[in-house]
Design a protein around this nucleic acid. Structure first.
Lengths: 200, 200, 200, 200
DNA sequence: ACTTAACCGAGACGGTACGTCGAGTCTTTCT
DNA sequence: AGAAAGACTCGACGTACCGTCTCGGTTAAGT
């Protein structure tokens, strides 16, 4: 449907090889040395590309990193089973996996800190996590349709709590032990345990 | 007989004025330009102090920033009322206030990213939030003593979720609307609303 | 019957317009910004031509500049009167005028410095000044034929002294006052004034 | 006699070693690769000094080169014998030697071209040649006192012609053959040879 | 009073990376 | 085949901060 196929095809076309090599090099260096020790010169060297070429396409180190991280993120499709607890747990675990993925985990704090400067941190986090947010939303909606929970759940908030709490762990440098997801799910589904019969 | 009080007190004593001026300048510049655009030279200039003096007492820019942030944080004493919901809400609000405090909000992401490098991010966050964690713990314990909730609540996790979810908001640059605490408390105390009668 | 007109005339013929526009743009930019701040990209833009076209015909910036300067130099025809002093003075003045011509004066030091690298500075200078050297040579020869001076004058040296002394003035940025030629001629024709009767 | 001994001795004193090493490295690289291929980065590397230190003291490559060339120039004292031709010849030869000195000869065209941009080329040339100009002036004055020539000789012009004509040779890349000075002196002292009895 | 040791201000230094600029080459499509 | 557009490599530029290092001068506690 889009009508711009002709566009402007004059001039030497952008080298797809260079483009890919740059993103790839960025991703690898990111996991090896982390964001702050990541240098544009190093990326250029590793990608076999000149610094100028990098700056032609990305205005800044953080912009490049953002795209590299995005390009390396897999959608993580989760097939809902119909059991609320199981599905939420899987969704939470998917976020854990996303953060734990080498490049992301190593780089996220640094990049995000850089992006906070221009207020675009949200975009990156959103780009990274929106599949998970959508999955969570669907799970919650389905459960509500089944009558297991009410329809008034704030999915947005729920996702934010999950994403935030886990990101916090990344910052603290704590290993993502296998039970994190389990415990978090318990808290979120049941509220403070043992609490019952108390009117709100 | 404590031993080290004598030490060797000869020589010019440390200038308390310079010390205070440095922390003050750091705090102000932090809120004005943010962590990444904060320069040691700028701090020295603003404090009317030489760079040497700064580096004599703090090994790095981040160490100085950490102390400055700490020095500017007020303990935030909350008097528990005995009502669980009210008290938790107040505790959460205290964390919100802590993050929202000018210097902290502006600087936290940057400093934390720096500290993540050496794995000391936890210390800063902990130094900043441990009063709140303690307060939360006491609130929860009291409620358990009153029988309102079980004794098996993981306070640590609870605090982490609160601190993380709110920090996430700071990163996103969202204003801390007045209801954040309210909503968060709702989720944490009750779990997914409308849920009942389902065995764990 | 010259033979090469046939050559191989396939393909699109060279655009004479582009060629002229490039030389013209070069000349103008040369007088406006000087040689070092002259850029090939700037020339291309001003000539409404692509960089490729420039490099197709000239191997380097300096080569282009050389041709531009040459193309802008007028032969400077001097009609000898038969009076030695008058004619030499006119010849010297012609060199002064050549140097003073806008583009040349502004650009010469820079281009020459570039050409010195490959030892081709002589070619440019020669191309620029050989009409004047020839004129000078003819004047001197005529005078010798008339018996006014000996036949053993080293015209080459004479021309070099004139060209060099005046070029030096260009370098110093001194205005070419009207009397330069006069004074120089005096020195060259008479030697140190007032000197007489001293055997060589 | 100067009274400023106190000056301002605060702060770390400038490293004389670094200063000397920089000038030395500049001089050597100049003779090895020439001015245009001379880079500040290369100088820094060779001098074992950081680029910053160079830029702290010299605003530009040309300024540094100027000082380096100056620092490497020896006064070249010539003892006048009392014979005009001999002394002038020696003076001219001194200029030849000055130009021929490795660093100067290799670099002069480039530096001068750079300096022409800001109109300070004269300063360098003057700094380099003023001892020779003074020597020439004295020789001419002495000869006039002895009555060999008139008192109205324009020494300035004479020096300019010598300096210019020889510089021109440098530009052309011609070797400074041993007779250059001889021939030049002949022309300057006698005017066009064979010419006599012609009233000015 | 007089050391003496630790402080402080000033500022030069090495180092690392930044983002920019220009020369010259190469690769397309259009004419 | 020539021309236009423009992506590309290479090399150097000048700047900014970091954290280190000397200096000269200052200020108390000890003798």
């Amino acid at each position: 449907m889009s009508t711009d196929p002709a566009e402007d095809r004059r001039g030497r076309p952008r080298s797809t090889h260079a483009h890919a090599a740059i993103l790839d090099a960025t991703l690898h260096l990111l996991t090896e040395v982390g964001y702050t020790r990541l240098t544009v010169e190093g990326i250029a060297a590793r990608a076999g590309v000149s610094k100028t070429t990098i700056y032609r396409w990305w205005p800044t180190k953080s912009a490049l990193t953002v795209e590299a991280i995005r390009s390396g993120s897999t959608p993580a499709p989760v097939e809902p089973t119909g059991d609320l607890r199981t599905d939420v747990r899987a969704a939470v675990q998917a976020v854990v996996d996303c953060y734990a993925r080498s490049a992301v985990g190593a780089a996220l704090p640094g990049v995000v800190a850089d992006l906070v400067q221009d207020g675009t941190a949200g975009e990156l986090l959103d780009a990274l996590l929106h599949p998970h947010r959508d999955a969570l939303q669907r799970i919650v909606r389905d459960a509500a349709d089944r009558g297991e929970i009410g329809h008034d759940v704030d999915t947005e908030l729920l996702h934010e709590v999950v994403a935030g709490a886990l990101f916090y762990r990344v910052l603290l440098g704590r290993r993502m032990s296998g039970d994190v997801a389990e415990e978090l799910v318990g808290l979120l589904l049941d509220g403070l345990p043992g609490r019952r019969g108390v009117p709100r």
